[in-house]
């Protein structure tokens, strides 16, 4: 009905909306990369099993463990997500750069992969990140963070609680 109305009104509008629907349909069926503003809304739709280990980054600022319930939802995300992304090596993305370069070659735009510099964080190592993160935490928590300790610890689910397992100090690194 809507498409018929568009067709009667302006044919170009009809074709525009039809193309939008087709692209969204392809994105839905292909189930891979998306293209703004065409997304897939499959959040938590894949089977999520219980894990053997639940790794957690514990953040100690000035010797005090930061607790999730002391912050708003987004406040906690603001603290935790940058650490998660950095330690998850999402800043490197070698695999994604490879996928993108293959796509560029398919589109005969191979020379563009020279612009990879724009896809890589320049000179951003652990020292840079944690130096920035300490200052950032000071802003977020409103307390000057002089001493920062990050511990990664595995937890196991026993059916009613998460029990602590092995832990490793991530920052500061021991020389």
């Amino acid at each position: 009905m809507y498409l018929r109305t568009l067709y009667k009104y302006k044919k170009w509008l009809f074709w525009l909306v039809t193309i939008v629907i087709v692209i969204q349909g392809i994105i839905f069926l292909k189930q891979g990369a998306v293209a703004t503003p065409f997304f897939n809304y499959g959040m938590y739709s894949e089977k999520i099993p219980y894990l053997d280990n639940y790794p957690v980054y514990k953040i100690y600022a000035n010797g005090k463990l930061l607790q999730g319930n002391d912050f708003s939802i987004q406040g906690w995300d603001r603290i935790y997500v940058p650490l998660l992304k950095f330690e998850g090596k999402d800043t490197v993305n070698a695999e994604m750069i490879d996928i993108r370069n293959r796509l560029l070659y398919k589109l005969r735009l191979g020379s563009l992969d020279r612009k990879n510099a724009h896809f890589e964080n320049p000179d951003f190592d652990d020292q840079d990140f944690y130096s920035w993160y300490r200052q950032y935490l000071s802003c977020v928590t409103g307390v000057s963070v002089n001493d920062l300790l990050i511990v990664k610890q595995d937890y196991q689910w026993n059916g009613s609680r998460l029990l602590p397992g092995d832990s490793l100090v991530i920052w500061p690194t021991i020389p």
Binding site: A35, K85, D90, N93, M96, R100, F119, N121, D128
Partner: peptide
């Protein structure tokens, strides 16, 4: 202070 890549062609 840093960015992450995503599987998004337009991006």
């Amino acid at each position: 202070s840093f960015f992450v890549n995503q599987m998004n062609v337009t991006m």
